[in-house]
């Protein structure tokens, strides 16, 4: 029996171990090895930190790197600010069928691929798009307006793309807050604002943290939305990685970029957890 149980456990763990090993650990080790070698001739390599030095000394790379981090944080905050009331409404105010209907509505956009969703925004925002025409028709502008290919369009796209990943953990945590605790807050003289600040938000903190982590990671690693909506003026760090690997065929630098992105995201997530007083374990439950 015990041997059988062990075998069962082993079989259960196999897919996970394969996935971790083949897709995460081995590629990363290889990536790291690639990133610390420098090409000195045809087929000749030596170990050196040259790629990382290039990254640190080239302003374009560094600026894009910091900009990507900043914009991702901004997109995360915006998603949180928009998603929180939505989640609160779904979790606490909507009842019964309305609740499930609203939840479904959050989910529906994810039935189509991200590419199609982003095209939707392009149809709305481009020069000959719906918004531009509407504004002209209303007489608010004289000529067509281009609303694509700037930071705002890109942030809109990022927020839209990641909304679900913020709303779901928030709904779950807010729903677990007992109604009577909110009522007790009112009963003891609390105003809406103080209840939100002292009761609802502290309770929802694990959800806020896990939602923010996911949204931040998705934004930071997003390639499609910045490329399509941000265009050339809103360069995203993933685009640099792509161009190193595919366009320039400089895998060494690309790998170094990839590693810098990994370090950056880990640092920011760590800082976010520290800032909100959460632990990774708490946010994952």
């Amino acid at each position: 029996m015990r041997a059988g149980a062990k075998l069962g456990l082993f079989l259960l763990l196999t897919p996970l171990l394969l996935w971790l090993g083949l897709l995460i650990i081995i590629p990363h080790i290889d990536m790291f090895l690639v990133s610390i070698r420098e090409r000195i001739g045809v087929g000749q390599y030596q170990t050196s930190p040259a790629n990382y030095l290039t990254f640190l000394t080239e302003p374009l790379y560094l600026v894009t790197f910091m900009r990507t981090a900043f914009m991702s944080i901004l997109a995360t905050l915006l998603t949180l600010v928009i998603g929180f009331p939505v989640a609160f409404y779904i979790a606490k105010i909507a009842k019964g069928r309305l609740q499930s209907a609203l939840f479904l509505l959050c989910l529906v956009p994810f039935w189509v691929s991200e590419l199609v969703r982003t095209f939707g925004w392009m149809i709305l925002l481009r020069e000959t798009g719906i918004f531009s025409n509407l504004l002209q028709w209303l007489g608010l502008v004289d000529g067509p307006v281009e609303m694509l290919y700037n930071d705002v369009a890109m942030i809109v796209g990022l927020v839209y793309t990641s909304m679900l990943f913020m709303v779901v953990p928030l709904v779950t945590t807010i729903e677990s807050l007992d109604d009577s605790i909110i009522e007790a807050g009112y009963d003891l003289g609390g105003s809406n604002l103080s209840i939100l600040r002292e009761i609802v938000i502290p309770h929802a903190m694990p959800g806020i943290a896990s939602g923010s982590i996911v949204v931040f990671m998705l934004s930071l690693g997003n390639y499609l939305t910045p490329t399509m909506l941000g265009g050339k003026d809103s360069l995203w760090f993933t685009e640099l990685i792509y161009s190193q690997f595919i366009v320039r065929f400089n895998w060494e630098l690309g790998a170094a970029f990839g590693f810098m992105l990994l370090i950056l995201s880990s640092l920011i997530v760590w800082a976010m957890l520290k800032l909100t007083g959460q632990t990774l374990e708490k946010t994952m439950t």
Binding site: I181, E183, I199
Partner: peptide, 10 residues
């Protein structure tokens, strides 16, 4: 309250 509704976050 029936289940007291003490604020667990405080």
């Amino acid at each position: 309250f029936q289940h007291l509704a003490l604020f667990p976050m405080m």
